[in-house]
């Protein structure tokens, strides 16, 4: 009797494992297919019927992608804007979150609510007014201007995440530092920050990704000197044809680094993702 129950339970578990395996394979398939396709001959990319594995492995698409005008520059611009935006986002979010968690609750709550409302604003709504503002301060078509725009997206989330992390740092720590004669900022910098380093890293990753993957602001705010990869990828379809092979290569080049990043930093990212929602 017990053996039978045990067997049935084992069978169910095996079935569940198989089910999960199938889900994961389905989930991984699109990206695997993208990467495989980028190694096909340009004409095989659009062959009918489609093939899964490349018939002939070739780097032709990557050559075409990297020698296309604007592509190497766009990769740099993406990196530039994302780096600036990450730094900016942290510089603003860490003190703000510290303020929220250490000072009075009412302004803090109002502020957090304000930041959340800011997150709801559709980029398309503030995109065009932002273009005007950037124009008037001379930041149109610059990585700094774009980074500022991207920070409007990542800042609310960064503040929210940092507030959650700093909340977990005991107030006694910075009080001890203040007794030793440190200023508020000094306490934050020397005592609280090192404790919350993990949280800062997660926040940085999210801020970086928000900018790295953003499209609309990049489309509106940049043209020549700061155009990022998402725009270049989107615009690869010209009036004179659509090179699927080159596009898959571009997409691969742009995604593989962040996918690898996600695999290395898996645990931290999961922690950051679930923090806000689960604790709320």
């Amino acid at each position: 009797m017990t053996a039978l129950v045990f067997d049935r339970r084992r069978a169910t578990r095996t079935l569940l494992w198989l089910l999960l395996g199938a889900v994961v394979v389905l989930y991984a398939f699109p990206f695997v297919y993208l990467v495989l396709t980028s190694f096909k001959l340009p004409t095989d990319v659009i062959s009918v019927p489609p093939m899964f594995l490349p018939k002939t492995w070739t780097l032709a698409n990557f050559h075409a992608a990297l020698s296309a005008p604007g592509v190497p520059a766009a990769l740099l611009h993406s990196l530039e804007a994302a780096s600036i935006s990450t730094v900016l986002s942290l510089l603003l979010a860490v003190p703000a979150a510290y303020g929220v968690t250490r000072y009075g609750t009412v302004p803090g709550q109002v502020f957090i609510m304000g930041a959340l409302v800011a997150r709801m604003v559709p980029p398309v709504a503030i995109g065009v007014p932002l273009v005007g503002i950037m124009n008037s301060v001379g930041l149109n078509d610059s990585s700094l201007g774009l980074a500022i725009a991207h920070t409007t997206i990542s800042l609310p989330l960064s503040i929210w995440l940092m507030a959650s992390y700093l909340d977990a740092v005991p107030v006694e720590l910075d009080e001890a530092a203040r007794v030793d004669g440190a200023s508020r900022i000094g306490a934050l910098w020397r005592v609280v920050m090192p404790v919350a380093a993990g949280g800062i890293a997660v926040t940085a990753i999210f801020a970086f990704l928000a900018s790295w993957n953003e499209f609309l602001f990049a489309l509106l705010l940049t043209s020549i000197h700061a155009q990022t990869m998402p725009v270049v990828i989107a615009n690869f379809q010209t009036q004179y044809g659509l090179q699927w092979g080159t596009m898959t290569a571009l997409a691969t080049i742009y995604s593989v680094p962040v996918v690898l990043l996600s695999l290395f930093l898996q645990r931290r990212i999961v922690a950051g993702l679930t923090l806000g929602a689960v604790k709320g």
């Binding site: 989930y27 990704l209 993957n213 995604s255």
Partner: peptide
């Protein structure tokens, strides 16, 4: 391990995902 695999699309730019699915 499987959760890790599950995580990766989150990192991909929406523009790339749209392009990829258009291709699929």
């Amino acid at each position: 391990v499987l959760r890790t695999v599950f995580l990766y699309p989150l990192m991909i730019a929406p523009i790339v995902a749209g392009l990829l699915w258009r291709f699929l």
